[in-house]
């Protein structure tokens, strides 16, 4: 997978979430939305390393992971906008999209992605394929008991599991440095006989290289891996969060390091892309995502009389 593809992916993800933001003030999305804005380089770094049969279990901040895993952006955005055309017909919403076809799912409960990913990893090993499972978590979730329990099991049984930690420095308002016993999360790897690395999550090339190493390790049957990618959450924790716990200077400095700008400058100086080509990618992506938004907005909501449809899959009325 080349750098141009990575750059395109980053730009598309950014515009995908910016398009979603349009639905917040209008109440088209009526829960609290979590965007990945600022964290695009991590998902872009996964490009080319995953097979369709691999599983990915994500969090409340899941849009980019879904897109990278191949979930149809139109159907994903429809779900976020609570439409009948959504991948879950509007029943799940933005915090819990499910796509069996892509082996993709997510959870709104912090820390609960890892045990589910572990279940996939167990099944993959049992069936002797070379698929692997990725459990994505944030830095905050790394302090949940599930982290320890999951990695212990994966390490003991050499299960094909990649724990991808998107370390954006915060769990809502709490700086991770205040609640973490070690310098990094990845250094816990040795406790679980796992591969572990902490990398700069703002550069998709660096992430990609690390993902390749981790995936090789896992696919060659050597057990689980922890990849920690350090990044920034540009917006409040959710749309509506006033973000008053971070100082103006902190936010200002953070925004100066926008990974999309940094990467486009890198590709310019490497002569991988020209200024014109970059502008083209930006314009095309923007049109594509805001085009999706327009279509999604025209879709219908699920019919009220279907509200009790999926409680069970079998008939329960006697």
């Amino acid at each position: 997978m080349n750098q141009i593809e990575r750059f395109k992916a980053m730009v598309e993800m950014r515009f995908f979430d910016e398009a979603c933001l349009e639905g917040v003030p209008t109440m088209e999305i009526h829960g609290e939305l979590h965007t990945g804005i600022g964290q695009e380089a991590i998902s872009a770094g996964l490009l080319g390393h995953l097979k369709n049969s691999d599983a990915l279990v994500s969090t409340h901040r899941n849009h980019y992971h879904a897109l990278i895993k191949g979930v149809n952006p139109y159907r994903l955005m429809s779900e976020i906008f609570e439409k009948k055309t959504g991948i879950c017909q509007g029943f799940g919403g933005h915090m819990h999209p499910f796509s069996l076809k892509q082996n993709f799912s997510a959870t709104g409960i912090v820390g609960q992605s890892l045990p589910v990913a572990l279940g996939y990893a167990y099944a993959f090993k049992m069936r002797k394929g070379d698929s692997l499972a990725i459990g994505v978590i944030g830095d905050g979730a790394a302090n949940h008991g599930t982290f320890h329990e999951t990695l212990n099991i994966a390490g003991a049984w050499k299960l094909p599991l990649l724990v991808l930690v998107e370390n954006n420095g915060y769990g809502i308002s709490v700086p991770i440095s205040k609640v973490l016993a070690t310098e990094t999360i990845a250094e816990r790897a040795k406790s679980y006989s796992a591969w572990g690395k902490c990398v700069n999550g703002d550069d998709p090339d660096i992430v990609s290289e690390a993902v390749e190493e981790a995936v090789d390790h896992i696919r060659s049957n050597q057990g689980p891996a922890i990849l920690e990618a350090v990044c920034n959450r540009f917006r409040g924790h959710y749309e509506g969060d006033t973000d008053h716990y971070r100082s103006k200077t902190e936010k200002h400095n953070m925004l100066k390091g926008d990974p999309i700008n940094t990467y486009s400058e890198k590709l310019l100086s490497l002569k991988v892309l020209t200024e014109n080509e970059i502008q083209n990618i930006v314009q095309t992506s923007k049109q594509k995502m805001f085009g999706l938004l327009k279509r999604v907005r025209g879709e219908k909501m699920p019919l009220p009389e279907t509200a009790l449809n999926y409680i069970f899959c079998e008939k329960t009325d006697g």
Binding site: G31, K83, G90, F91, M301, T306, A307, I311
Partner: peptide, 16 residues
């Protein structure tokens, strides 16, 4: 609530 998880879509939520 008629023994159903709370749905995401407003159109469904309003009836449960």
């Amino acid at each position: 609530v008629p023994d159903v998880p709370i749905p995401a879509a407003l159109s469904l939520e309003q009836v449960v």
